[in-house]
Design a binder for these strands. Structure first.
Length: 282
DNA sequence: ACCAACACCTGGACGC
DNA sequence: TGCGTCCAGGTGTTGG
């Protein structure tokens, strides 16, 4: 998915165009993906858009919210006659594929005729309709650790969570209850910046390495947001301007290390493929 | 208590 | 062409 930078980009885009719209109807051909009662929000107006790590919340004016999790392959596409389309999330199928299409599983129609399509090739994502006050009580959200760009995420916090486990550091970085928002791409990137091998045991890191990793986590997320994530198709043109983070990624799906020229290797760690420079990440 | 394996799903890329 | 296998930006559950 859609890790923190992709969802943040989507949040900013939707803020510009979704606020003020009134929901007419929500339909889905996949009952598993739509949780809660859509009728509760028919006629409600979009008030604000929020994000918790990789989750997106559309806050309505009738005490209800729409909570989205895009998982691995979710994407949102807003079609509105008054401006070119806005799309974000996972880039497969390509975000300029006409909608609705085979992977469209939820459609939110607004009174002004515009539509927000939730596409998800693998159908792991979901949309939950619930009271706004219940959102913060969702166990997954309650258990989220600090996000890399908040003050609660700092070297001493990172030291604390690292010393408690001998898991590979890559695995720890992706645990949402420890650090919220990093997934497979940005954990690879954070470790590249820190010059740390993904398989290193978390509790083996020195203070200097922790400091470097702290900076690496922030750098990875900042760069991701600056480049509008890896998959945005923005509202700028009709074909859109793609998020270009993958063009500047340092480790994820890269071939050669831009720092030392070493070969980027890959390795399965905790069921995920880690990408790293075998030469300068130790 | 931990962690690997599997489960949830589809489809593209590849080898034969 | 077709069929089998592997892989994919996430997370919840299970069973050893």
């Amino acid at each position: 998915m859609p890790e923190l930078p992709e969802v943040e980009t989507l949040k900013e885009g939707l803020k510009k165009f979704l606020i003020g719209k009134v929901i007419k109807e929500i339909t889905s051909d996949r009952p598993k993906m739509l949780i809660g009662d859509p009728k509760q929000v028919f006629g409600a107006q979009v008030k604000e858009i929020a994000r918790y790590a990789k989750l997106l919340e559309v806050i309505l004016d009738n005490q209800y919210s729409l909570l989205f999790h895009l998982k691995l392959t979710g994407q949102l596409v807003l079609i509105d006659d008054s401006h070119p389309k806005l799309a974000g999330g996972h880039a497969v199928p390509p975000l300029n594929t006409p909608v609705p299409n085979k992977s469209t599983h939820i459609t939110i129609s607004f009174e002004d005729g515009s539509r927000l399509y939730f596409n998800d090739l693998r159908q792991f994502g979901w949309l939950k309709i619930l009271k706004t006050e219940e959102v913060a009580k969702e166990p997954f959200i309650q258990n989220l650790g600090p996000e890399p760009l908040t003050k609660d995420f700092n070297p001493s916090y990172l030291t604390e969570i690292c010393k408690k486990t001998s898991k590979p550091i890559k695995t720890l970085l992706m645990e949402q209850d420890k650090i919220a928002g990093l997934g497979n791409i940005y954990s690879d990137e954070a470790l590249w910046w820190a010059k740390i091998h993904p398989k290193r045991k978390a509790n083996s890191l020195s203070l200097e390495e922790i400091e470097a990793l702290y900076k690496g986590c922030k750098k990875a997320i900042e760069e991701g947001i600056a480049h509008k994530g890896s998959s945005l198709l923005s509202y700028v043109t009709i074909e859109g301007e793609r998020g270009n983070f993958l063009h500047v990624a340092k480790a994820y799906q890269q071939k050669e290390c831009s720092r030392c020229g070493g070969k980027i290797s890959s390795l399965k760690i905790g069921g995920r493929t880690a990408h790293f420079c075998g030469n300068c990440q130790r």
